[in-house]
Design a protein around this nucleic acid. Structure first.
Lengths: 231, 231
DNA sequence: GTCCGCTTGTGAACACATGCACGTGAACGG
DNA sequence: CCGTTCACGTGCATGTGTTCACAAGCGGAC
């Protein structure tokens, strides 16, 4: 097993970081081995899923015993590409962009904020948590200096697609989009999105269901004063 | 059809807000009808999926023509429970909590920040974007005053589970968790999570794959420069 | 050396989601 | 009034993900 190039299902990939975090906790608690059941509890999933997920990485467990915490952590970090830091370039120095730069959690987890970029000339030169804001046209230089980076889009929606284009053009192949807009990227570029308003709306859907289904208003003309503008 | 209580698949629910946003854009562009193909383009999915998703809401389209933009927006808002505002209570007035309070995008979309809560007595009383920071023990009062709210956890990981417990106890049934921790909630409470570090780690996985698979280090310690890019 | 209990690893069944392909019904032109 | 065109709605096949259940294998006891 441990077929190096075997494809790992997307759903599994998304859970690996959660397992890793649980392993770190368990490691700090001085545990040397961990069972799939315990790991499942910490990760909030069921044990069978843990075993299947881990089996994609290889047969790193010992029957009757469990998994060696340190060894599994190491293998998982390696698989996730976390054996070295990935510099992060944040585009958009507004509220969110600044909050991201201020948040120390990224550096601690191997994702140092290497640059903060904004289109607004007034912001260029400002210092945010020790990082100087750069102009948007410096992007290509920055990125070729830094090597492989992860690009984060924290701009208003209307600017998101252009920023994505520029990032891709500059050679960035991993992009995390916080802007509330659907953007497209060339083949070979990974894109993930985090849309806070969408998350709230999904919660709204389920809450409203629990309360007895959609409002009864049925039939009549679409015109009239209805829902608040939701964009 | 249009069976009110028919279950809508989770994957579909997660796309509805994206469709809604696209519809708002299209509406602002003065379009009165829209085809599944156009909507698919705007939402970044394929047309068959759009039609299947919309069919769960009811047969609101017209064959040969498309969907009436305004009417569909209305029905979708209703289904998502967006016909009225949902006040949001943010717990944790650190970096992220303050950024959320400052971000105007939520209010515009029907999710006004109604309260900001923190355990740190030094922060209580501060004003953040016009919202006064309250103490954690005021939570029950706040929530019973506000009615149905959405709770947002923006605390450090170690505090997340306790905050979730307190929110649930106070009657909150929709929680969005930003803390990098797995938390559990009672039956009947919806929980969604946004974990920025996890997103970055997922991107790291795919980027590292593109570069030629995990570092070869099989036996022991990591370290050392990794494989060159293989594009 | 053998047995026993424990936990992994995985085949198979099931559930869920996606995408195709085509039937269906509405609008419109002649 | 009929035929053509268009785009929706949906049955079906395919693919992806989850869960169950159990054989296989390891470690420890004796």
């Amino acid at each position: 097993m441990a077929e190096r190039s075997q494809r790992i299902p997307e759903a599994t990939v998304a859970r690996l970081p959660v397992y890793l975090r649980a392993l770190v906790e368990e490691s700090e608690a001085k545990a040397s081995t961990i069972s799939s059941e315990r790991l499942a509890e910490l990760a909030g999933v069921n044990a069978a899923k843990v075993r299947k997920d881990l089996s994609y990485l290889g047969s790193y467990g010992t029957r009757g015993v469990g998994y060696d915490v340190e060894y599994l952590m190491f293998q998982m970090s390696r698989e996730l590409g976390l054996t070295h830091d990935w510099p992060v370039v944040v585009v958009g120095a507004g509220n969110l962009g600044q909050a991201l730069a201020n948040y120390g959690g990224f550096r601690d987890r191997g994702f140092p904020i290497a640059a903060l970029v904004d289109a607004d000339a007034d912001k260029v030169g400002d210092l945010v948590h020790g990082v100087e804001v750069r102009g948007l046209d410096e992007l290509p230089t920055l990125i070729s200096d830094l090597g492989h980076v992860i690009g984060v889009i924290a701009t208003p929606a209307h600017a998101a697609q252009e920023v994505a284009d520029r990032l891709a053009e500059a050679g960035v192949t991993s992009i995390l989009n916080f802007a509330p807009a659907v953007i497209s990227v060339p083949e070979g570029v990974s894109l993930r999105k985090v849309d806070l308003a969408v998350e709230l709306q999904i919660l709204s859907f389920y809450q409203q269901r629990r309360e007895g289904g959609p409002a009864p208003a049925e039939g009549v003309a679409p015109a009239g004063p209805h829902a608040p503008a939701v964009s």
